[in-house]
Amino acid sequence: MADEGVRVHPELKIRKKNRNVDRYVFFVLALVSLVALGIILYFIFAQAAPFVGKLKIVPEELGTIQKWGENYAPTTFWDLFSSRWSPASYKHQFFGMIPMIVATALITFAAIGMAVPFGLSAAIFVGEVGPRWLKDIFKTVLELLAAVPSIVYGFFGLIVIAPWVRENFNVISGQNGFTAALILSIMALPTIASLAEDALHAVPNTYREASLALGATKWQTIWRTLIPSASSGIIGAAILGMGRAVGETMAVLLVAGNSAFLSWNLFDSIRPLTAGIALDMAESVHYSAHYHALFALGAMLLLIALTMNWLAEWFHVRLLRRQGVREG
């Protein structure tokens, strides 16, 4: 028996290893993300590119389809940074992005300013103070909040929050930057709370034990030890929340008022970048200067959003790296 080799069933066709076809098939599939990203970057910047050169348009020929470069007008790249946005005015089109950038900034900072305290409190309470079962419920609540479509938030803001703001803050209209900031803060809350909770959870238990062993109360431990340790993660959470707020369209479209005039007052009707794009897109004519200007808005928006994303990632990596160094 031993000499014959062990019994092998006659019908077993022993398979040989093929070339690594499967590995490459999946690799190609995995490239789709990079391809999609490349397409996005290409289209946005290609269609915004005309503004880098001198964009020529004829004011009198508004409304007809025109390819850029065939006519003249005093519109250049730097006009993008003027403080007036009137793409449809008769004599001279204005494509200044500044009003919208300012609006986005005002709303975003206000929203995060409101969301972080609540998000952080929630994260601390649920993670460190409250009973254990609260954590699961909390996470579920956050997930459901995050799942609400933005247009529903917009509608809610319009019907419920705007009138409330109008009555209580002595403004003419409830559709203003402040209402938008309120709504955005609710929308950003789940992101911030969830990530802050993760950051706090990631602080090693040894820190808590050491602090308590020295006689500090739980609160002192949290305030003086845990929060500083988790600061990178918490800042990362805030920035990611900001990224979400910056990119939000439908909610602000419905409640921010959408006046294109530059204003530094949060309680005025203002128009953030996202709403600016959405509003005008329906009216602009393909390939007109207006069209390119909208893509320029998109490019600006993309740059801001991706920068926030990248910054948040950087902070997150710092958090991870700190953990690694301290543990080792």
Binding site: F27, A30, L31, S33, L34, A36, L37, I39, I40, F43, I44, Q47, G243, V246, G247, E248, T249, T274, I277, A278, M281, L294, F295, G298, L301, L302, A305, L306, M308, N309, E313
Partner: peptide
């Protein structure tokens, strides 16, 4: 390199605002 690049790609895609997808959808 490829692994890191694709991860960056996925993470970056996640951060693109939805209206930018609309613009690209329009263009493409």
């Amino acid at each position: 390199w490829w692994l890191r690049a694709i991860r960056v790609g996925v993470n970056t895609l996640a951060g693109v605002p939805s209206i930018v997808f609309g613009l690209v959808g329009l263009g493409l």
